[in-house]
Write a protein that binds this DNA or RNA. Structure first.
Length: 476
RNA sequence: GGCGCAUUCGUCUAGGGGCCUAGGACGCCGCCCUCUCACGGCGGUAACACGGGUUCAAAUCCCGUAUGCGCUACCA
């Protein structure tokens, strides 16, 4: 098995899933998982991108057995391969200019034929002499048979047939001698003894070309499986403009690596009609290429979110606390919040554990503890909707809390419940204003625990501030 | 334009001739639980792209149409 990304950007969600499928198969079958960077395009490939891809793979928990190999470091191998192809007469030098090539393709298109380039394979000595004089260098093209067809016996799609007449004489080496993708990929798959190539469906039309190269070199092509693409909500191939499209985006948003792995596995694959939450070991054991779907799948981040929330809730409290703190530290959450912030966050961990769906939601739930009181519009509206009532219940709450000695979860609950009954309120109408009064939000950590964590002084201060603002309104 | 591939609830999917009155999950809606938002539980909503065949019987097989996507570079 192998995963062979081009280091021209971050690890795309689709790429991550391709890597995952390959990895699952390798681990399931005891095969070898090879990592290979296809960086023959020196213009676009960067070391930063390579490092990022490796980092994301590790983050996801995908480890490789061999590599990372870089095609840029294997040029002799490709040169040798091209020489062998030349010797076998499988490739030929193509002297056509870009303009000539374009003209050929446009003409074919205009005549409703396949825009297939068939280079001129024989030139006069005069022409050759002229090219040499001009310093023109040829690109080497594979001489595709005009007759016949190549059929891919694809694991997920069955037999896929390509007529040779539809396949152009693809370039295998640039005029500067550097290898091109279809050559390098084929040579590597052969040379690295790759037995199964599992990759995105976007590569399916390259496959016959790579099979030709391998056969031209006297090898036997590996088995292929082309997995369906991952789409954005608009059904177009998932990309940056769809929001979270790279593994890093998901990491930054506070998803757990395993949630991502689990969710990715379920895009285009299913074990049965019920299984959704599966451990790494279960995924490895259950996965099979035969159950991979043929049709593309829309990536629904909401589902990832739900799954992530479930995994978070499944964690042991300690593990959750550490995970949360690590995330907040890493994202720089504490940098501007003073020395006590981390301790406070640790204490708040149990209060948010059941409520979070992703780690980055922490701030919207508990962030109010780290800031002076400020009201979200909607929350303030809810108080203002009935100022008199708000003053009454918040005042009632304050009255009891400011004289409460046992300022604990239990103590607070007792006193507030009591007040609730005295005022003849229902829980919702009484407790909501209390929540808003101290957090400024409608959704937050649980109210009793929150007050305990805040402490009496700060609680009282916030109550008074809210009451003051409401009183102003009332008098006006 | 050419070639290739695909098409089951809004989304991910189960299904491979009778077990389908099409199952599950997410979303959405409703109810319940909880002295609070959330979490959780229960219920509901909602799909075989269309048209022809084949067959006693088709979501399942065949053909066509439509639509979508991919590829169509001296990118990978």
């Amino acid at each position: 098995m192998r995963f062979a990304p081009s280091p021209t950007g971050s690890l795309h969600v689709g790429g991550a899933r391709t890597a995952l499928f390959n990895w699952l198969i390798a681990r399931n079958t005891g095969g070898t998982f090879v990592l290979r960077l296809e960086d023959t395009d020196r213009e676009r490939s960067t070391p930063e991108s390579e490092a990022e891809i490796l980092r994301c793979l590790r983050w996801l928990g995908l480890d490789w057995d061999e590599g990372p190999f870089r095609q840029s470091e294997r040029s002799e191998i490709y040169t040798t391969a091209v020489e062998r192809l030349k010797a076998a007469g499988a490739v030929y030098p193509s002297w056509e200019t870009d303009a000539e090539l374009n003209a050929m393709r446009e003409e074919a298109r205009a005549n409703k034929r396949a825009p297939v380039v068939r280079g001129r394979r024989h030139w006069s000595d005069d022409d050759l002499g002229r090219f040499a004089a001009e310093g023109r260098k040829p690109v080497w093209r594979f001489a595709v048979d005009v007759e016949g067809q190549t059929v891919i016996d694809d694991y997920v799609r069955g037999a896929v047939t390509f007529e040779h007449a539809q396949i152009e004489d693809f370039a295998v080496a640039r005029s500067d001698g550097t290898p091109m993708y279809n050559l390098a990929a084929a040579v590597d798959d052969m040379e690295m003894n790759i037995t199964h190539v599992v990759r995105g469906e976007d590569h399916i039309s390259n496959t016959p070309k790579q099979m030709m190269v391998i056969r031209g070199l006297g090898g036997t092509p590996p088995a292929y499986a082309h997995i369906p693409l991952i789409l954005g909500p608009d059904k177009k191939r998932l990309s940056k403009r769809h929001g979270a499209a790279s593994t890093e985006d998901l990491e930054v948003k506070g998803y757990q690596p395993h949630s991502v792995m689990n969710a990715l596995a379920l895009l285009g694959w299913s074990y049965d009609d019920k299984s959704t939450m599966m451990s790494k070991d279960e995924l490895i054991e259950n996965f099979s290429i035969a159950r991979v779907s043929k049709s593309p799948a829309v990536f629904d981040e909401k589902k990832l979110q739900v799954m992530n929330g479930r995994y978070l809730r499944l964690m042991e409290p300690d593990e959750f606390e550490e995970t949360l703190i690590a995330f907040l530290t890493q994202t720089g959450y504490f940098t501007d919040k003073g020395p006590a912030a981390e301790a406070l966050a640790r204490q708040s961990a149990p209060l948010v554990k059941r409520k979070l769906t992703t780690l980055d939601e922490y701030d919207s739930l508990a962030g109010w503890m780290f800031r002076p009181l400020e009201f979200e519009d909607e929350a303030w509206e809810s108080l203002v909707a009935d100022v008199r009532h708000s003053i009454q219940v918040i005042g009632g709450g304050l009255g009891r809390l400011e004289v409460l000695d046992d300022f604990t979860n239990a103590g607070i609950k007792e006193v507030l419940s009591d007040q609730l009954h005295i005022l003849g309120e229902n829980a919702r109408e009484f407790l909501e204003p209390q929540r808003v009064a101290i957090t400024g939000q409608k959704i937050s950590t649980g109210i009793y625990e929150s007050l305990e964590l805040l402490g009496r002084d700060e609680t009282v201060k916030r109550y008074r501030e809210t009451l003051g603002r409401l009183a102003e309104l009332w008098n006006a």
